[in-house]
Amino acid sequence: MDYVQLVVLALIQGLTEFLPISSSAHLILPAQLLDWPDQGLAFDVAVHVGTLAAVMLYFRRDIFLLVRDWLLSLTGKGSTPHSRMAWHVGLATLPAVVFGLLLKTTGLDEAMRSVAVIAATTLVFGALLGVADFLGKRTLRLDDMTLGQAMMIGLCQMLSLIPGTSRSGVTMTAALMMGFTREAAARFSFLLSIPVIMGAGLLLTLDLAGSPEPVDWGVLAGGALLSGLSALLCIHLFLGFINRLGMLPFVVYRLALGVVLLFFIH
């Protein structure tokens, strides 16, 4: 990798991981459209570590309360909104874990990494996000969430393993459809990203451990730092503006990107 590729891919990962526009699509496209060499497993691990550090740093107080109250609930100290949310996040993660392992063992995850798939999912799920934002009642808060609603969002999260779908996009779409506010939908999506990114990073690390790929620690550190800082800024700005801007800018972007991608299908 040269430094231009490093900077571009690290910023793409950081800026798109938590926006409803699909980070996986944006990481695949430069290699396919600009004929860049594949960034490799080690770099993928590094940028995932960067974005994971960013979301955990931003939600550090929430994570502390969730873990504390969840542990207390296990010792019979009673249920709290934080312990219930911890159960919601944990259980809603399971469908994506099972589906992800299934795709990996069958090889379908690699088969779907194409411009045609990305173009289709970008258009379809971009339109669904717009419909959900327009029709959703936006009255429910995060504390109103039931386990059934959390599991439904978790089931929808499985679709994010298809490149171009966007994990944050599909989970926010599901939450908005159920009547949650934009901020509640975004916050649950971000909390749900923590175990998912951890799991993805672990799988990549295991793959890397069995790979002869050489490791450039300077490149990895730079990628992790850039992706982490850009992700931290992205989360802060997104939560600050989402109630005023809504999802329309992201819907328009996705539809425009999808149309452009159609011209690159061979």
Rank of each mutant, 00 (worst) to 15 (best):
R141P: 00
T122R: 00
G136Q: 03
P95S: 10
V117R: 10
I153R: 15
T146Y: 13
T146H: 13
A111H: 14
V98W: 01
T122H: 00
L103H: 05
D144C: 06
V98N: 01
M158W: 09
M158N: 12
C156H: 08
A127C: 00
L94F: 09
A150G: 15
T122A: 00
L108G: 12
I118T: 06
C156K: 05
F134V: 12
T122V: 02
F125L: 01
L142S: 08
G136R: 04
L159N: 10
M112Y: 13
L94I: 14
R113Q: 10
V97F: 04
A120W: 13
R141D: 06
G148A: 13
C156G: 10
A92T: 15
D143Q: 09
K137W: 01
I153W: 15
G148Y: 12
A116K: 11
M152V: 15
L140T: 03
L159M: 14
L129S: 01
L102Q: 02
T146C: 14
A120H: 11
R141T: 01
L135R: 15
C156M: 14
L147C: 14
M151G: 13
F99W: 13
A116C: 05
L128R: 00
G130N: 03
T121M: 10
L94G: 07
E110M: 10
L103G: 03
G130F: 04
L140D: 06
L103V: 06
L128I: 07
V115H: 00
T105F: 04
L103T: 05
T105R: 08
T121E: 02
V97T: 09
S114Q: 14
L140K: 15
L101A: 11
K137E: 09
L101M: 12
P95K: 07
S160P: 08
A116L: 10
V98P: 01
L155E: 08
D143P: 02
A120D: 08
V115F: 00
S114N: 11
A119M: 02
G107T: 08
L123H: 03
V131E: 01
T139R: 13
L147R: 13
L142H: 09
L101Y: 09
T93N: 11
M152T: 15
S160H: 08
G126K: 03
A119D: 02
A127T: 04
D144L: 08
L101S: 07
V124T: 04
G126Y: 05
M151I: 15
L142I: 14
D109P: 06
V97L: 07
L108T: 12
